[in-house]
Nucleic acid binder design. Structure first.
Lengths: 135, 135
DNA sequence: CGGGATCCGGCTTGATACTG
DNA sequence: CAGTATCAAGCCGGATCCCG
């Protein structure tokens, strides 16, 4: 991983934005990104630009409404770029912005790690459920 | 991109878990981790073990019920360890498991990047809203 | 094709109260 | 302190209809 300007000295520098605070706008964006469809949508877009209905196919289970809604939130946050052509039939392409790509990369790192760790997770679930049912 | 590092002996079979598939259990775990309180809870625990009510204070805005529920889901997935002492008053400590720490690290990478990128996000929102209101 | 508008059921959430 | 139980409200998300 590349290390930006960040001097990894002591704890953290005092950032003006703190997700742990209730009212911080960063929490909203985090929820857009990690929301039910936000993460999957960005993950799908990370593979490349995509039209609306193709996106629907990539993100299994999402409805038109939620995809539309999700895309709007991400576009407003500057993570997704929307390019519409007023042709007939209309054609709209979505793609990640540079910022969006960086966010998606971190998101996918999480997703892939989770996928690889699923055997452990599943094992833990079994253990947990057995310890419960036994008692 | 990067070379897929598979420990499996079998050839380049795809991973057995795919979040993009509706029915995959990895999507459940992803939702536990990225859910409304899951991420913040794990982020808070990444700083160190913590008791229930202290956790509530760290994660601003979470209710008892949701914290309890969140912790149970994470414990079941093997990401959080719960250590209870049957004293009076009761004392329960929560901490991340090794797996949980790895997940939390990726989560925090995302969170911190988002916090640092908030100025851009906020700027994008302003632009977006102006383009809307103008029309 | 790419959405917007509307309706509506139900799951999630959050107070509140109660227990060990 | 560390939760569980209960209940009302509200937002989420799906289905449907409609438009450019």
């Amino acid at each position: 991983m590349e290390t930006p300007v960040r001097t990894e000295a002591t704890a953290d520098a005092e950032l003006p934005f703190d997700v742990f605070a209730r009212a911080c706008p960063s929490r909203e964006t985090l929820e857009h990104v990690t929301g039910r469809w936000g993460g999957l949508t960005m993950g799908a877009l990370h593979e490349g630009p995509c039209r609306f209905n193709e996106l629907r196919r990539r993100v299994d289970g999402v409805s038109e409404k939620m995809l539309s809604q999700t895309l709007q939130a991400l576009e407003r946050d500057g993570l997704v770029h929307r390019e519409a052509q007023a042709t007939n039939p209309p054609r709209v392409d979505y793609e990640l912005t540079p910022l969006g790509h960086e966010v998606a990369a971190r998101l996918l790192a999480l997703i892939h790690f989770l996928e690889e760790g699923m055997p452990q997770v599943l094992a833990a679930r079994t253990t947990y459920d057995e310890a419960r049912g036994a008692r």
